[in-house]
Design a protein around this nucleic acid. Structure first.
Length: 637
RNA sequence: GCCGAUGUAGCUCAAUGGUAGAGCAGCUGAUUCGUAAUCAGCAGGUUAGCGGUUCAAGUCCGCUCAUCGGCUCCA
């Protein structure tokens, strides 16, 4: 046997005979896998040549991935033991865990999870070695035919002639790239989460399989933390919070059409006010088009061809009309009312546009996915040479807006030409390049989403990250050469020629409804002062004795524009404080004899902190500062 | 749209196939209170809707609707 040299991360080198398994060469406790020359491999992989080996143990970034992949196999094995005639599809890892798709007669219920988890534990205890075997396509086919695995056979037909690996643990064998843990014994901290239907290969025309989602972690604490996180997210659910704080509601009578209650409307208007101010400061002109427009317009715009399944139609005097799903055609009509000059460019039309889109019933979800929503929509018309500047200007507004609403982390992606697209590929390429260049010049990293552009142009998608580290898509910026063409819009260029402008479609918060849901879940309903519909509650210790002073205090606050309630109900002080706190009122001002005499208020924050008596003037001053600076944290300390 | 689960008072939840109940909220009265629930009384329901099985249905079956979790789609 020739000797080979193994380099370890600490710079040391060991020599061993070629073919030595990696785990024997590196001799590391708790080895889950190894990186051989940077490639993830099984711990027992034979080393055949000089190489660099990095051990993957529990603290390695790749550890979770390996663990979860093995957990998916573990679950599949348990399912195979417990149920008859199970067909296996695929079982990958995902962000928070793993899933496996099965086809079988039995319908899984969450009660089955107990049984499956118990079987999984049993397999863990059996300490089955997980071993890799490589075969060729014919060998693979033989194995799969033996298993009656029609889904896997279908996938097999699509791969080339490269060697294929199978992993076996006990009686269970699965086609898999790997790597896997060396044994089932180290999969300890897992939980099956939910069962759901999933189309085979994500195609709604094909079989509906049963998917079980699970998660697995390296330690019991990490699993517990994850479950706690999910609980926290559930507590912050905007539907729940919206009901508790009486912000919005949903009714059977209008699925997908949310109701805004008085306090929700205050929140909505506060957001709108800020959005408008930011746009006016940047040269946008607000417009508003009608909600219903005749069908011809939608043929001209291309929406009928590309979007009509999502549109609502309504007859007026026997003529067909469409309820608008987008605002752009309206803005094009407005554009065409005047002769435009290059001197006005970029021309910026802004609309809080109420659009209706027919969404499939199964996708509706609170305010996050509705059938009628208001977009913070705008269209910029610019000269061809200035498209990139236009995009950059818009992007800057996007960044500013997210920061103002307290979102400091966001990501961008460029979505390119979809299959159903209008306009020439050359124009698409040009538009895609403009978007990418603008982002690059602004130092904004982005990824590419192939084929995910709108039918009339490629787009930048902006995602914000909330306080629970979840991503939400909000803004889009789209470059469009087609719509100006279709509507034959022009402007007078500096050289006296009539030219065709380019259109930039953009929304920043996206849908106001959706954004309010995100805002709500970001803070769990405990809105920063500037946004909160309930900013201050004034609570007299006794209504009879101090009610008048409480109303005076309330009057001062209201005069300063602070959203204030004076709670003069015949209830105990403790109860009024409790209720105001539960409604996430930023500040509770308690007034009694001492305060009345001294012209002060006793300040209590919603987090329970009792700040003691403060002069009313000072309180008003601080609250106004907190509001004007849009502070996320309370300024009263 | 597809797969699955769920639907009881305004809210949160109980109720072996055998008279639908509690807490909170609401109303009335008492209480005037110093930092997260004062006390008492009253009222509140075609158990999502429609149909079926049964002597008897909140409970079992079917259909419809809505919601939730996923899939597909998407702001």
């Amino acid at each position: 046997m020739p000797e080979i040299a193994i380099r370890l991360p600490d710079g040391s080198e060991v020599r061993c005979p070629a073919g030595t398994p990696a785990d024997e060469a590196v001799k590391t406790e708790g080895l889950m896998a190894v990186l051989v020359d940077g490639r993830l491999r099984d711990a027992y992989t034979p080393l055949t040549a000089d190489c660099a080996v990095e051990p993957v143990t529990a603290d390695h970034p790749a550890a979770l991935e390996v663990l979860r992949h093995s957990a998916a196999h573990l679950m599949a094995q348990a399912v195979a033991r417990l149920y008859k005639n199970v067909e296996f599809a695929i079982g990958p890892t995902i962000e928070d865990g793993f899933y496996y798709d099965f086809a079988l007669e039995h319908k899984f219920t969450p009660e089955d999870f107990v049984k499956i988890e118990a079987e999984m534990q049993r397999i863990v205890k059996e300490n089955l070695p997980i071993r890799r075997k490589v075969t060729d396509k014919a060998g693979a086919r033989a194995i799969m035919e033996g298993q009656g695995a029609k889904y896997k056979l279908e996938l097999l037909e699509e791969v080339g002639d490269e060697p294929l690996s199978f992993y076996t643990q006990g009686e269970f064998t699965d086609w898999c790239r790997g790597p896997h843990l060396p044994s089932t014994k180290s999969i300890r901290h897992f939980k099956l989460m939910k069962v759901a239907g999933a189309y085979w290969r994500g195609d709604e025309k094909r079989d509906m399989l049963q998917r079980i989602y699970g998660t697995a972690f390296l330690t019991a604490d990490a699993l517990k933390d994850h479950l706690r996180f999910l609980e926290e997210a559930a507590k912050r659910d905007h539907k729940k919070v919206g009901q508790q704080l009486k912000l919005w509601s949903f009714h059977e009578e209008g699925p997908g059409f949310p109701f805004f209650l008085p306090h929700g409307m205050v929140l909505y208007d506060t957001v709108v006010d800020h959005v408008k101010r930011m746009h006016f400061d940047r040269g946008y002109q607000q417009v508003k088009g009608p909600i219903i427009l005749n069908e011809d317009l939608w043929h001209r715009s291309g929406h009928w061809d590309h979007f009509h399944e999502n549109m609502y139609f309504t007859a007026i005097d026997e003529k067909m009309n469409a309820v608008k799903p987008m605002n752009c055609p309206g803005h094009l009509l407005i554009y065409k009312e005047d002769l435009h000059s290059y001197r006005e460019m970029p021309l910026r039309f802004f609309e809080l546009g109420l659009v209706h889109r027919h969404e499939k019933s199964g996708v509706l979800n609170g305010l996050l996915r509705v059938r009628a929503f208001t977009q913070d929509d705008a269209h910029l018309f610019c000269e061809l040479d200035h498209v990139k500047e236009g995009i950059k200007e818009v992007n800057q507004l996007v960044f500013d807006m997210y920061r103002d609403f307290g979102f400091t982390e966001f990501k961008a992606a460029v979505a390119t030409r979809p299959e159903k697209a209008m306009g020439s590929p050359e124009l698409w390429a040009k538009a895609e390049a403009a978007l990418a260049e603008a982002l690059t010049e602004q130092g904004m990293a982005f990824k590419i989403k192939p084929g995910e552009g709108a039918f009339y142009g490629p787009k930048i998608e902006f995602n914000i990250k909330d306080s629970l580290k979840r991503d939400w898509q909000c803004g889009t910026v789209q470059v469009d050469f087609s719509m100006p063409e279709r509507f034959d819009i022009e402007y007078m260029a500096a050289d006296g020629q009539m030219k065709r402008p380019v259109m930039i479609h953009r929304a920043i918060l996206g849908s106001m409804e959706r954004f309010l849901a995100i805002l709500t879940e970001n803070c769990g309903g405990a809105f920063p002062l500037w946004l909160n519909p309930r900013q201050v509650a004034v609570v007299p210790v006794s209504e009879e004795k101090f009610g008048a002073y409480a109303r005076t205090v309330g009057g001062r606050l209201k005069a300063a524009g602070l959203r204030t309630v004076v709670d003069t109900r015949d209830e105990s002080l403790g109860k009024k404080i409790r209720e105001a706190t539960q409604l996430k009122t930023n500040y509770i001002l308690v007034v009694g004899a001492k305060e009345q005499e001294a012209g002060t208020v006793a300040v209590r924050r919603r987090d329970g902190a009792d700040l003691g008596a403060r002069p009313l003037d000072a309180v008003v001053e601080t609250l106004l500062r907190e509001r004007e600076t849009r502070s996320v944290n309370p300024l009263m300390e």
